[in-house]
Simulated scan of single mutants.
Amino acid sequence: MIARLLLALAALFLVAFLLSPESFAALFQPLTKNGAPPIYTQTALLSLTLSHLGLVALAVLASTIVAVGLGVLVTRPAGAEFLPLARVITSVGQTFPPVAVLALAVPAMGFGAGPTLVALFLYGLLPIFENTLTALQNLPPSVTEAARGMGLTRRQRLFQVELPLALPVILAGVRLTAVISLATATIGSTVAARTLGEVIIAGLLSANTAFVVQGGLIVGLIAVLIYEGFQLAESAAARRTGQRLSD
């Protein structure tokens, strides 16, 4: 109950701050020096936040589609031989730091959101793929056998039995990817993507701690809310199939 109350208060604070950041100037004033502004106003914080979330949502959606698709493919008899290749593909983003991916993507795609999307997409594949693989490979044999006994086709077993049972674990992978991507997206501002990294970078360049705290605070609060939101979704998915989550 206390945790939910704290989450509600955090959400209310975040909304209020984004809608009227000037109202919180007194809160950040002690973090400034030499009369520097306490609130970042070069670009509206709400606009940057929505742009940041849009990039993350698009990247996570793309990562989910590809990673789950690969997970399904390699757990079918016809695609099992592609498991090593799938692991290599999904590990690429973890092998190369996002900064390196940005540096490689900018010459080909130019500055802006494109390189950031590529970096976030690649970085988000592995957690979702591994969770999908684990979930589909560890389905209760009795359930899958019962589905076969009912005469369900392979496609029907996949969409009516296997994926619903695997959904809680898959969502856990998406949760991890979403939270990591939310924080990682801040580096997109180094290549002119509109993210909350703009606020943090401005604070670092001007030695204004208030700006750095604002950018970090918004990202941190959203990360907590997304994390908790996904946990609720995982619990709901598990209840629908009569499962119990381990954490």
Rank of each mutant, 00 (worst) to 15 (best):
V60G: 03
T116H: 03
Q243K: 15
A16Y: 00
V99G: 02
R154C: 00
P115W: 05
L182K: 03
A238Q: 01
R4V: 09
P84D: 01
E22K: 10
L205D: 15
F96T: 13
A135K: 10
R244A: 13
S181F: 04
V179P: 11
A78G: 00
A10C: 11
Q137H: 00
Q94F: 11
L182M: 03
E162F: 06
G114A: 15
A86E: 07
L126R: 12
F13W: 15
A59C: 07
V56L: 07
P21I: 08
R148C: 04
L167A: 13
P164T: 04
L55T: 03
S20F: 07
A172V: 09
S235L: 15
I2M: 11
G197A: 05
I180F: 14
V68S: 03
A59G: 07
A207F: 14
G188R: 14
V92S: 04
F28A: 05
V174L: 06
R148M: 10
V179L: 13
A135N: 11
Q214W: 09
T32M: 06
I128V: 14
F24H: 01
T190C: 01
R157C: 12
A183H: 10
E234M: 15
A236R: 15
T41M: 04
L12T: 14
A178L: 11
L225A: 09
S189N: 08
F28M: 05
K33Q: 13
L85P: 03
T153L: 03
L117H: 13
Q137W: 00
L221V: 15
L48N: 05
R157W: 13
L221Y: 08
F82W: 12
L7H: 04
T144F: 00
V199N: 02
I170P: 11
G71T: 05
L14C: 04
P115D: 08
L55V: 13
L165Q: 13
R244F: 09
F129D: 01
K33E: 12
G93A: 01
N34V: 10
L245I: 12
G79W: 02
